[in-house]
């Protein structure tokens, strides 16, 4: 088996704050194999944003990497120099952010921006422009040859997200990070963008790290799923195993809360009572213990990441018990 494109190992990141050290990520292991789509699910405060920032070398000044490595194409990005990181970000790891409205420069035409990002290529401007037009056509921009000279504000939100995806894929990156790419879009556009991502994956032979809180999108798009809670990976599994046989109680409750899975006319709607633990003063043992309906005495010690087989692991003492 070929080595993974991205290998995050034992990554721990903390933020210095007035209330002390906030342990935002703790011992996170995530692998993205070649040509695979890995989904990260988690709710606000689970550490998704910190994780992406760590991979891209864009952590806030008050963040501190406590342990771990981010392996990408044979080197540790956490130890890379700013110049090396710049050479990776963009051409090798492309990122799509949540808000397509602010991801494009408003004062440059789409053509200028798409030619600019090819600055490492030796081709002439005409060839770069042709590539950009071909890519825009590919992501579904009608009349791309004419519209490429327009500015961002002339495009609708859905079109802008298509352009952003096109720009991200233009340099044939090895890894595409999509950070909630459809959250700002309406549901009919969301379906279109997810469809586009699925179509494009075949063409770029790249891997995608897809971050979302929407379980439906994860189910539709991803091959593997990582569930995060309060800065930890609580479960990691192939997509069918995760949706059909979830092992961690948090995953189970999260799936149960999804209104699209709830039987028609259910009232009251299921919720997970309680809130996130304080990252500055984490409880002993399992982080989910306070909200877990099956919590027991043994949960007071940190649960191991148990291997259930076939790439399915869960951080719960009862994982695999049936």
């Amino acid at each position: 088996m070929s080595p993974p494109v991205l290998a995050i190992r034992d990554l721990s990141v903390a933020y210095r704050s007035r209330r002390g050290r906030l342990a935002a990520l703790r011992h996170v292991d995530i692998e993205v194999a070649a040509n695979r789509i890995v989904g990260i699910v988690g709710e606000s405060g689970c550490g998704k944003s910190t994780l992406i920032a760590a991979v891209l070398g864009l952590l806030a000044p008050n963040a501190e990497v406590m342990s771990g490595t981010v392996g990408f194409e044979g080197r540790n990005l956490l130890a890379a120099t700013p110049a090396e990181l710049r050479a990776v970000r963009g051409p090798r790891i492309a990122t799509i952010f949540q808000d397509p409205m602010t991801a494009l420069n408003p004062v440059l035409s789409i053509a200028t921006q798409m030619i600019d990002i090819q600055y490492r290529s030796d081709e002439g401007a005409t060839a770069k422009r042709a590539r950009a037009i071909a890519m825009l056509t590919r992501v579904g921009i009608p009349d791309a040859a004419q519209r490429i000279d327009d500015y961002a504000h002339r495009f609708s939100g859905g079109m802008r997200q298509r352009i952003v995806i096109g720009m991200a894929l233009l340099m044939r990156p090895a890894l595409l990070i999509a950070d909630e790419p459809t959250t700002a879009l309406d549901v009919t556009l969301e379906a279109q963008i997810v469809h586009l991502l699925r179509e494009m994956r075949g063409e770029i032979a790249g891997s995608i790290l897809f971050v979302s809180h929407n379980l439906g999108l994860i189910a539709e798009l991803c091959d593997e799923v990582v569930v995060m809670y309060a800065g930890e990976v609580v479960e990691r599994a192939p997509v069918r195993a995760l949706f059909h046989a979830p092992q961690h109680p948090y995953t189970r409750l999260l799936l149960a809360c999804d209104p699209a899975r709830v039987a028609e006319g259910t009232f009251p709607l299921p919720t997970i009572p309680g809130g996130l633990p304080d990252l500055a003063a984490l409880p002993q043992g399992c982080v989910f213990r306070a909200r877990c309906p099956d919590a027991r005495a043994e949960c007071a010690t940190p649960p191991p990441l148990r291997n259930i087989g076939a790439g399915h692991v869960a951080r719960c003492v009862r994982a695999g018990d049936g």
Partner: peptide, 10 residues
């Protein structure tokens, strides 16, 4: 258009 949380529905 609502995405279904079931990986068997594509």
């Amino acid at each position: 258009a609502v995405p279904q949380p079931d990986p068997d529905i594509k």
